[in-house]
Simulated assay, not measured.
Amino acid sequence: MAHTVLHIDSSARQSGSTSRVLTAQVVERLNAETVIRRDLSTPLPLLDEAWIGANFIPADQRSDEQKATLALSDSLIDELKEADTVVIGVPIYNFTIPTTLKAWIDLVARVGVTFQYTETGPEGLLKGKRAILAVASGGTEAGSDIDYASRYLRHMLGFIGITDIEIVAADQQAIDAEGSVQKAKDAIAQLAA
């Protein structure tokens, strides 16, 4: 069976980035037939009034300009839909995710496309996918009360239907860099392909 991975890096650093090293190792471990690469070090546009206006017009009523405004968002969502597994590099900046990753989330979380509202509340539409978060931090312990990055991503991915989420963490590197990275590498070695 064909397996497609969406590989997302969000670190501002091109070299010396622990999260980039970890995502590369995770993707290698998964041995996917197809890898879609999305590097967020070149920032995505932020939502603006034109984008929001276009988003709330029914798809069959959008002007060419409105379709063009949503084209990048549509492309990012297509990448998500195509993927069986999403691997996201998550450096923790000031206890949360990088702004570039937040911009990606804003562009892919679209009512009627990746989630919908029902009588019982919101329902994610991207079910049956797996996500692996490669978390790196200097001082924040992954999963702790001050780790707003992992909790937020678990919530947002679940909101769009991706609930099978695993975390590989090289956290608290300022305390024990070598041990932290080795712990993450050991976790990667245990991931199911």
Rank of each mutant, 00 (worst) to 15 (best):
S41V: 07
I36H: 05
L72Q: 08
V108F: 04
D74A: 12
Y93A: 07
G179K: 13
A136N: 06
K127V: 10
S144N: 08
D164R: 11
R130K: 15
V21C: 03
V35H: 05
L126I: 10
A54N: 07
Q172V: 10
A192D: 14
L40Y: 03
T42Q: 08
T120E: 15
L133Q: 09
F56M: 05
E33N: 14
T4P: 08
S15C: 04
Q25F: 09
F56Y: 15
P91W: 01
G89F: 08
I97C: 05
T85P: 00
D84W: 03
P45L: 02
A54P: 09
L6P: 10
L70Y: 05
P98D: 01
E141C: 00
L107D: 01
D84T: 13
I77W: 01
L40V: 01
D64M: 07
Q116N: 12
T114F: 01
A192Q: 14
T42W: 14
V27Y: 12
A192W: 00
V86P: 05
D164W: 06
N55W: 12
D171V: 11
T69Q: 14
D9T: 14
G139Y: 09
H155N: 09
D84N: 14
S15W: 08
Q116P: 07
R20W: 13
I92M: 11
G139W: 03
L80F: 11
A189E: 10
L44V: 03
S17L: 11
A170L: 09
I57F: 01
V86A: 07
L30F: 14
S17G: 10
H3C: 04
K185P: 01
G89N: 01
I36P: 00
I36R: 05
V108A: 09
I36T: 07
G16P: 03
L76A: 02
S11V: 04
D164A: 13
V86S: 04
R151N: 15
A2W: 02
Q25V: 02
I57Q: 09
